[in-house]
Design a binder for these strands. Structure first.
Lengths: 146, 146
DNA sequence: GTGCTTGCAAACAGTTTGCAGATAG
DNA sequence: CTATCTGCAAACTGTTTGCAAGCAC
């Protein structure tokens, strides 16, 4: 996980370079995204924002996420059943552990994934620019609770 | 890729075991799914069915896909932007090459992926039951067309 | 002051559901 | 004959868009 404060300042300066305006809502959202404590969904982010701003909207969350996506500063993780989760703390491809019970998503250090990509794709003449590796199963907590 | 005819008969017998009725629409859909020539979306399957049955519906496609999903006989591949593609030819986890231009999805033989799963997850006390590995990039065709 | 951003509401797309009629077994 | 399946239409969910008012710069 990247350091939340460093990543927050990184996002701030990248948006400023783009002449984006730093509204309080946007700053709060960036701070949430940079924290890296979770891989939140859009509505989860909205719920957290609502505790700070009594008036705010899901549309604003989506607009900022889409802006960051265009800039390549957020990883959009689409799953089955229409579930989408975001990772703006570490926006480059990396393996994830996805708990099938509590739906927690944890980063997983795993050096060999990237070179596996190159190796596997070369066989089919495929030019790899990105990859995605998810492990599904039960996290330690969920294994211990029947 | 599994042999289409074998996989088709396999799906047929598994549905019969469940006392499912083999309507012409369902048989045609199973044949499409077993063919393994592509990793189609629901509406792509519907389009292909419409050429055989002038009256048919997307709801029927979804109902059969959901039935096969419950039986573990289809792999649901969710992507960003609400895109969902299905793989019923080889319904167990395996790596995919996803073309970011033409959106072709190709199976990729890659023996090391499964053991990588075990290895990586053991470090975090995560019990892996499934995995997903996608490589994104340009397929051979798209590299050769500007 | 300018024009980007917000937040509401309406539109939208993909998926799911309810139900009456059709049909496989 | 019976229970399942089909296919239509309506409901639903998550996301996107349009626009008037607000606010960062």
């Amino acid at each position: 996980m990247a350091d939340p404060q460093t990543r927050f300042e990184d996002l701030m300066s990248k948006l400023r370079e783009r002449q984006c305006r730093m509204t309080p809502q946007r700053v709060a959202l960036l701070r949430l995204l940079a924290s890296g404590t979770d891989h939140p969904s859009a509505s989860h982010l909205y719920d957290q924002l609502k505790t700070q701003f009594h008036t705010t909207s899901l549309a604003t969350v989506y607009k900022t996420l889409s802006l960051l996506d265009d800039m390549g500063e957020v990883l959009e993780l689409g799953f089955s059943h229409g579930v989408v989760r975001y990772d703006a703390n570490k926006p480059y491809p990396h393996p994830h552990l996805v708990c099938i019970r509590c739906h927690k998503i944890v980063d997983c250090e795993c050096r060999t994934a990237a070179c596996l990509a190159e190796q596997a794709a070369k066989q089919l003449g495929f030019q790899v620019v990105s990859h995605r590796l998810d492990f599904y199963g039960l996290c330690a907590d969920c294994q211990n609770t029947g």
